[in-house]
């Protein structure tokens, strides 16, 4: 439970939502990128619960205690509730989200991470490994665990979207364009992926699997994986 590290009081709530775990669950992160987004989600979720209770409570009070709000001048209501409160909260939230977003970008690194190419066609993904000489294209994505990997996402026909929810957000595969997403699996294991952008009759079955290997086994696994 990584998120408990940052927001301890929420551990209880998270536990009560243990139903959230699942092979495609964004709330069951297995890498730093998905983890950061899950944290952002929980912050926004609890803030939203409070705001909903506030507005719903005001609505109830207006009816149950007529005249309770008269002490606050009409325009005060508008300025405080409509401008000041959302203004402050949104400034904080936008700043926080941009900070997180900036960290997730595939910045140039002194030690460039390995690159894998994910090519979407109707209706399957083809993964190839330009960094590894002699590696063949595979239907399962192989990555080393514990370190970032850059996935170069392209399309051979229509728009697809590469999404491994437990590792990171999604990025679209757009014909003629070349998008890069940085993912990382903290531990070796198998992670499920889907095509998130509707791409025709086979959209539903355009799923794939990510196998994260211990770094020392990675090369060998890729070389052996050819179908």
């Amino acid at each position: 439970m990584k998120r408990a590290r940052i927001l301890p009081p929420l551990a209880l709530a998270s536990a009560s939502l243990s139903a959230c775990a699942g092979p495609l669950s964004t709330l069951d992160p297995a890498g730093p990128s998905a983890d950061a987004v899950a944290n952002l989600w929980w912050v926004m979720f609890w803030a939203s619960v409070l705001l909903f209770l506030l507005v719903g409570g005001l609505w109830a009070l207006v009816w149950l205690r007529p005249g309770f709000g008269r002490s606050l001048a009409p325009m005060r209501w508008v300025v405080l509730g409509g401008l000041v409160m959302p203004g402050v909260l949104l400034t904080l939230l936008v700043g926080f989200a941009l900070y997180i977003g900036e960290r997730l970008l595939p910045h140039a690194l002194a030690d460039p991470p390995p690159r894998v190419s994910a090519h979407g066609i109707m209706w399957q993904w083809q993964f190839s490994y330009p960094d590894i000489a002699g590696a063949a294209t595979t239907p399962t994505l192989h990555i080393p665990a514990g370190a970032p990997v850059d996935i170069v996402v392209t399309s051979g026909d229509v728009v697809h979207s590469f999404w491994v929810p437990r590792l990171a957000g999604k990025i679209d595969a757009i014909p003629g364009h070349r998008n890069v997403i940085r993912i990382q699996a903290d531990r070796p294991g198998t992670y499920e992926g889907v095509c998130a952008e509707f791409c025709g009759d086979g959209h539903t079955t355009m799923r794939f699997r990510v196998e994260a290997h211990a770094p020392q086994d990675y090369r060998q696994a890729v070389l052996e994986a050819a179908p």
């Binding site: 964004t26 998905a34 950061a36 987004v37 952002l40 989600w41 926004m44 939230l93 936008v94 989200a97 941009l98 997180i100 977003g101 997730l104 979207s161 999404w163 929810p165 990171a168 957000g169 999604k170 990025i171 998130a196 952008e197 509707f198």
Partner: peptide
């Protein structure tokens, strides 16, 4: 509206 969250939730 938050970019990182949208990248998870988009199209879901």
């Amino acid at each position: 509206a938050m970019v990182p969250f949208d990248q998870q939730a988009h199209d879901s």
